[in-house]
């Protein structure tokens, strides 16, 4: 597991039914591209997050495939529909097999 990986997600706490809300996500990860060289001139092996998904109550909102050209600390902003109260599940998949998860609940008034 890469060190110091910390997901951060911003989701409003409440919404009206059928509203679209903006979600911002950021995860601290160095996203080593596999193109850089160390002091001895050896390539530093690639180590990135290769996939990010967001689901709401089991239904998919967005599924992103990441390549090494995504910046350090991958950031995403997108919009989701909220038909009812429930939980957003966010999942990041690391090259080394680790999976980072976090969730946020939202109440429909």
């Amino acid at each position: 597991m890469a060190k110091g990986v910390k997901p951060r997600v911003k989701v409003p706490k409440t919404a009206a039914a059928g509203d679209s809300i903006t979600i911002k996500t950021l995860i601290s990860h160095k996203m080593e591209s596999g193109q850089r060289k160390d002091k001895e001139g050896n390539l530093i092996p690639r180590s990135i997050i290769n996939r990010f998904t967001c689901d709401f109550n089991g239904e998919n909102v967005i599924d992103v495939t990441l390549e090494p050209a995504i910046s350090t600390n991958p950031f995403f902003e997108f919009e989701a529909k909220v038909p009812e109260s429930g939980d957003f599940a966010f999942t990041w998949y690391d090259d080394d097999g680790s999976v980072y998860e976090t969730s946020k609940s939202i109440t429909v008034e």
């Binding site: 679209s20 809300i21 591209s33 193109q35 689901d55 709401f56 239904e59 998919n60 909102v61 967005i62 599924d63 992103v64 495939t65 990441l66 390549e67 090494p68 050209a69 995504i70 910046s71 991958p74 950031f75 995403f76 902003e77 997108f78 919009e79 989701a80 529909k81 038909p83």
Partner: peptide
Amino acid sequence: ATGNPVPAVATFKFGPLAASQAASTRIRL
């Protein structure tokens, strides 16, 4: 990114609950 050593940057797939088919992110060039 056509001028990068590896051109692919990202692929966004939108599910049924995406309110808009839009996304923003930060990339390396």
